[in-house]
Amino acid sequence: MVDALIKLRLGVHCGCVLVLVLASSKLSGQEINILYIGNTDVPVYFGARQGLLEANAQGEFMGVVYRLIAITDIGGVSVTPVAIIAAVDAARLEQIIEVYPHVPILNTILKDTKLRENCEDALFHIPPSTAMLEDAERQWRQHAPKSKARANTWHRTFRKYAAAQLNIRFMEQSGFEMDNDAWAGWAAMKLLADTIVRRPDLQGFGLVEELKTNLAFDGQKGMDMSFRETGQLRQPLLLIEQDKIVGEAPVRGVVNSEDLDSLGLAFCAK
């Protein structure tokens, strides 16, 4: 598939903002605009572009076209996005929430547990929180006390659950191997599309609610993922030691391997 790549240069408050509009070459049907805010030379953006390709492969059958509008900072965008994929620091994320209070925002890089504790209504977190990673490592040590394995979202050698297919597709498109950040960018775009394609009429809090209650997505990690009320994506994690996958968390035999809430903060403080 050949992407139409249109570069627009818009003069706005922060100096120069580069807007990239990527869409399927077929521009018929309902158009869905997703905003990407962050650098475009980082793996997370390549991941989101991979997600866009796959979203449009699906959309083509359903008369839906997704556009990923990439900007490095807020401002200068005339369209109201259906959702925002954010790859920015915490301060910028705050600004985005202020500017777009009714739009689902998907954080793709920040791992701070505190952000999850804030329980923002329309804010979703794709990467595991620090607390989730620590819990996964703690579980793993109970299973293998001497192991120095670290918890990760993804690994380039992951094969199960059609992970191999995703790794191949990403490598072919992007020219480098999928890492934690690239997976987060891909997952953000893909889960948005998987939800929107079933309910293209939804926007704003309607879409927020749909993401929270009706997600149908496994992230090529073999388990039914969903969002916690903290906005955190429930997901299994990989234990990596010396660049090899040695295990998966929740760790079977230590906890119930189906219990994704054994990792990190499961609920908002009342």
Binding site: F61, M62, Q165, D194, A216, D218
Partner: peptide
């Protein structure tokens, strides 16, 4: 199609997709 969450109904012998039906994940 597992990643697209769909059943493609294909007419034979035309080999044209006549329906795409979204179903559950994978």
């Amino acid at each position: 199609s597992e990643s697209t969450n769909m059943l493609h109904v294909i007419a034979v012998p035309e080999h044209k997709i006549i329906n795409n039906i979204l179903v559950g994940a994978r």
